[in-house]
Design a protein around this nucleic acid. Structure first.
Lengths: 260, 260
DNA sequence: CGAAGTCTTGACTAGACTCAAGTTGGGTGG
DNA sequence: CCACCCAACTTGAGTCTAGTCAAGACTTCG
């Protein structure tokens, strides 16, 4: 475990600037939000810092939680030291819906890097959604996107080769991080995940992840070192992954039922 | 558990007896329902028959649909004639939530065997849930169970060997079909799925599915022929699968938010 | 400087895939 | 009623992707 106290953090943009910026960008990708809505949202979010490799929800309770910076994942342990990472959570993603999804057995969620987590009480969240239907619609669109990502992950684990798995994941990350403004010039982004964690995500061994990354590097598609990914040939990467971004584009406008 | 409700079920239970029996059993597993609730449910369901290997939702529209008999699956196609079956749908399962899940890009759903499908208009469904909170809670518990099954499938595809995949699936089917009264004496149940379809479900090749079934057969765990499975050694099967039914037991009582 | 975690490499193994050739079984039509 | 047909199932042989084991190199940090 890492017990360092990262007071001043320069390079990683995580702990600087406006903590809610990513969430606002994410929601704005679905619905155009006004200043009043954004202010209302800001006023009900409490921000906590979570160190790397800690449970994201130390304080259980009736809250909706959102990842604001860093990286997290949901996972399941198996007998024999095996682990499957069910999904990666990036800034702007809702990490826990409280009771809203009726998930009786919430999977474990841990941070992979130092992160900021936003917390909203269920009461405040409900009121926000009732008062600002655009925010509610954006949240619902976010849920739909998460479900689509989860389905695509089944395809990855069931059908794709190691090169396809890796490049598909990188394409997805590139897209998801771009939406929240975390892809820099030259298609570079922070991705603080170890090769062992990538292995647990992709259903591969650590050694094979290493070799797969070497192949992609050798082919000039991506390079990854020290938690930084640079996509050197995006069309090539998309081709290697047979990546079809359709599943990420929740283009349908969903009309929620008029409650009451 | 009380399995004694159903009518007389002879060889093909599919198209005989009360079509809604499985749905009622499924909901009753979560919440004890009264006669009034069951009658109200019956009065708003339209039943259609769907042949094997047909799209389950020929008539799109604002409906919640439920599988009443038979077998169905949700799937995704890939380039190169590959297919991943995302999940199996058994009698009593909701096969489509309409807009309720905000699923903008609904995956394709097809029947695997001749089936009966129940259709409920969104308006009727909403009113039913508002009038009978126990039904609403049961539906929510069902959604939670479906989500848990989907997560477990990620573990299967990411981590388990072929023998574990197959035996885990069989354990799950045994459990899910038992809940709706479709497991007969000696742990036998109808499972009208081809080995090629099993392959697409488990992320294996058809040939390997065949050989895996032979192993399980040789070890006296299960036998499968002509769409009928008999579990000959359930503890052994559970052991081979390292099956932990915890994920199927939505034991937590979920209190939905008081709307309005 | 030492320690721990991470990454890299090599050698070998094994589980699963592909291809190809049968076999079985149920359904259909003559 | 039988012959045929097609889909599903089975088997064998050979290949290959990915896993395992083990050792060593690189980083980071105390």
């Amino acid at each position: 475990m890492d017990f360092s106290l990262p007071i001043i953090v320069s390079a990683p943009p995580q702990i600087s600037g406006d903590p809610l910026a990513r969430l606002v960008m994410r929601l704005s990708a679905f619905e155009r939000l006004g200043q009043e809505e954004i202010s209302a949202l800001r006023s009900i979010v409490t921000v906590d810092v979570v160190e790397a490799h800690e449970n994201l929800h130390k304080t259980a309770g009736p809250y909706v939680t959102v990842l604001l910076s860093g990286l997290a994942c949901q996972y399941k342990m198996l007998s024999g030291n095996r682990r499957q990472i069910l999904g990666l959570i990036v800034p702007g993603d809702v990490s826990h819906y409280g009771f809203l999804t009726g998930d009786a057995a919430p999977a474990q969620i841990t941070s992979l890097a130092i992160s900021q987590v936003g917390r909203i009480s269920i009461a405040d969240f409900t009121e926000l959604c009732q008062r600002y239907p655009r925010i509610m619609r954006a949240i619902i669109r976010g849920m739909a996107t998460a479900a689509a990502i989860s389905k695509e992950r089944l395809v990855t684990l069931g059908q794709r080769t190691s090169v396809e798995r890796m490049s598909h994941l990188m394409c997805e990350m590139n897209y998801r991080l771009d939406v929240v403004g975390l892809v820099g010039p030259g298609n570079t982004f922070e991705f603080h995940i170890t090769q062992a964690e990538l292995a647990d995500t992709l259903g591969l061994s650590t050694v094979h992840v290493n070799r797969t990354l070497q192949v992609l590097r050798r082919d000039g598609l991506i390079a990854m070192r020290q938690g930084k990914v640079s996509v050197d040939n995006l069309p090539g990467l998309i081709g290697a992954a047979r990546f079809d971004p359709y599943y990420l584009l929740q283009s349908t406008m969903i009309t929620p039922p008029t409650v009451g």
